[in-house]
Design a binder for these strands. Structure first.
Lengths: 320, 320
DNA sequence: GTGAAAGCGCTAACAG
DNA sequence: CTGTTAGCGCTTTCAC
C-alpha cells in the first residue's frame, strides 16, 4: 500500500468525496503500479449491487432477438454494466428456474413480454428492477405494472395489411404462431386493415424457417385463389419464400409474401422480402436505458416507451 | 432459522457431508418455507468462484457466432453456470478492456482465437482458465499454450476448392477479409486444392452481407471469364449472391458462389448456397465442456480438440 | 480530508 | 455428524 487507508481508496474510486491533490496522486500511482482492480464479488456483497444485468430471450437463433441483445449490450457496456444472457427456448419450466437463478446474480432484468405468464408473475413478485420488451397493446398485459418498451403489433400488421390491400390482394393466408402472445394482435391488425379480404389462418407449431418451408405447399395450394401469405415472423417467411420458389410459384406474381421483424437477411432474399421493422436493436437499447435508470435512481421518467413499427416494402409484395 | 447452524446448512447445500435424516429434513423444510437462496456474491467472496463464465465473440450479428453462443449457453446452463456475453466488435481497444473487466467477474473465459494478439496475450497472462475457439492450424497460434477447440480452415477450404475444381471451375475469385487471422488459411487451402485454377484475390474491409453486395459487380466483371467466387464467410456470400441475381448473372450457370460457416439461412437462398459447415454450435459446446472441466478440476484430459469441417454442396455451385 | 471499526452472507478449518 | 471461529475484500457509518 502507498500511504492511505482502504477507506480512502474506496472513496476515491467511487468518486464520493474530494481529496487533496497530493493524496489523490499517490493513490492513483499505487493503483497503476499494483494494477489494482476492485473485486466485484466483494463490492457486491458490501453494496448489494452487482453491476450486471440479465437479459432473457426466447430464441437466440432468431436475428430479431440477436438484434435486441446487440442493442442492450451496447448500452450496458457504455455504462459499465455486464450482461448475462439467457435463452429460455420457449420452455415454461426453464423460464422460471433460469429467471430466478438469474435474478440473484443481477441488479435488474430485461425480459421478453412473451415469457410464460407464471414467469412474468414471478419476475414482478421478485421486486427486482425489470423491464419487458416486445409487442403488447397498452394495458393488455396482465402484469402491466412492469415497465416496458413496447411496439404495437396491431399497428405493424395494420400497415402491412393496408399495403397488401392496396396492391390488390384479397385472399390472404396468415401463418399463425399461436404459442406466442404476440400472435393475436398481428392477426387482428391484418383483419382490420383488410376488411374486404378473405383471411385464412393456418396455425404453426414452430417459428422457424423449417416450419415455413414445410407448410409452404399446403399454404399455397390449400386455399383457392390465395394471393398473399403473411407470416408471423421473418423466419417463417424466409422458409416459405424459399419453398415457394422451389415449387415454381411466382412471387409476387402469383402470391405475395411478407413477414415481421425486418431481420437483416430478408433484404437479400430473391425476391427481397417485404416486412415490418420491429426496431430490434432500438428495443434493446431503450429497454436497457430504462432499466439502468431504474436501477440507478429507483425511479424512471417514463415507465412505458412505445416504438413505431415501420413498413418495409420490398419486391415480394410488388404488384402482379 | 430452524434448529441448526449456518455451517451445517452450507454443508448440506454444497453436498459436502452426510447428515442425519432428521436434520436434513428440518433444514430442507426451513429452506422451503423461507424460500432461501444462497447469495451468490457472498458465496463468491468466500470461495473465490463465481459460477459464471464469459464468452467473447467478434460479432453478435453473425449467426455463426450466435450458434457458438447457443452451444456454449446450453452446456453452461446444464451445469449450473451463468454466461456473460461480450461482443468486441473487431475493435482492438475494446477487446482488452472488456476482457479484463470480464475476467474479474467470471471463473473462466471462452474467446475467439481471432481476438487481437494483445488481448490474447493478456488473457493468457491473466491465468484465468480460458479456452479459445475458432480456426487455427496446430501450432500456428502464437499463444498456443491456451487450450482450444479448433477447426481447420485449411481443410475446409481444401474441400471446397476440390469440389469447385471437379465441377470444372478454373477462374476463381476469393473475397478475402484480411483483418481476420482465419482468412489466410482459407485462401491457402483453396490454392492447394485448385492447382490448375487461376485465383484472384479481392480484399474486403468488412465481413457483412452489405460488403458482399457492394463488391459484387467488380468481383463478377472484374476478371475475365471468372467462373467461381469463394467468400471469406457466408455473410459475404449472401450479399454477393443476392446482388449477382440482381445483376442478372446466372448462378451457378455463369458463376459459382460459395462461403464458409453454414449459417442457417444459406440453405434458403435462391439458389441455396454451397458452404462449409464449421460446426458453430459444436464449437461452443466443446469449448464450454473443456472450460468447465478446466475450472472444476484444474486440469483437462485433452487441451486441444479438433473438429472436422463438412462440405455442404448446394445448388449455387452446381455444374453449369 | 482521512481513518478505525463493523459488517455484508457465505465457507473453511478445526474442534468436539 | 454438528457447531465455533475466522476471515474473503469491500463499503459504510462515525469519529477525528
Amino acid at each position: 500500500m502507498a500511504g492511505v487507508s482502504a477507506t480512502t481508496v474506496s472513496k476515491l474510486i467511487n468518486r464520493q468525496k474530494s481529496f487533496s491533490k497530493e493524496v489523490e496522486a499517490r493513490i492513483r500511482a499505487a493503483i497503476e503500479t499494483l494494477d489494482y482492480r476492485q473485486n466485484p464479488a466483494a463490492r457486491s456483497m458490501a453494496t448489494g449491487q452487482t453491476r450486471v444485468v440479465g437479459l432473457a430471450v426466447q430464441d437466440l437463433r432468431n436475428p430479431h432477438f440477436t438484434g435486441i441483445i446487440q442493442g442492450a449490450s451496447q448500452v450496458a457496456e457504455a455504462q459499465g454494466f455486464g450482461l448475462m444472457v439467457v435463452d429460455f427456448k420457449e420452455k415454461e419450466q426453464n423460464a422460471q428456474n433460469l429467471l430466478s437463478t438469474l435474478a440473484l446474480r443481477v441488479d435488474g432484468i430485461i425480459a421478453s413480454s412473451r415469457l410464460p405468464e407464471a414467469a412474468l408473475a414471478q419476475l414482478q413478485a421478485s421486486r427486482k428492477p425489470a423491464v419487458l420488451f416486445g409487442q403488447t397493446e397498452p394495458g393488455q398485459l396482465a402484469h402491466g405494472a412492469l415497465p416496458s418498451v413496447r411496439i404495437r403489433g396491431y399497428q405493424a400488421a395494420y400497415l402491412l395489411g393496408k399495403h397488401l390491400a392496396e396492391s390488390g390482394r384479397h385472399q390472404v393466408t396468415y401463418l399463425s404462431y399461436p404459442k406466442s402472445r404476440w400472435d393475436h394482435e398481428r392477426l387482428h391488425g391484418l383483419r382490420e386493415s383488410m376488411p374486404d379480404a378473405k383471411i385464412k389462418v393456418i396455425e404453426l407449431e414452430a417459428q422457424t424457417m423449417e416450419a415455413g418451408e414445410s407448410i409452404a405447399a399446403s399454404a399455397i395450394y390449400g386455399a383457392d385463389g390465395c394471393d398473399a401469405i403473411v407470416c408471423y415472423n421473418d423466419m417463417i417467411a424466409i422458409g416459405l419464400l424459399h419453398q415457394a420458389c422451389a415449387l415454381g410459384v411466382e412471387v409476387p406474381g402469383q402470391i405475395a409474401i411478407a413477414g415481421f421483424d425486418n431481420v437483416p437477411t430478408t433484404r437479400f432474399m430473391t425476391p427481397p422480402l417485404t416486412t415490418v421493422d420491429m426496431c430490434s436493436e432500438e428495443q434493446g437499447e431503450k429497454a436497457m436505458e430504462l432499466l439502468l435508470q431504474l436501477i440507478k435512481t429507483g425511479e424512471a421518467e417514463a415507465t412505458e416507451l412505445q416504438l413505431e413499427p415501420r413498413l418495409i416494402v420490398r419486391a415480394s409484395t410488388g404488384r402482379r
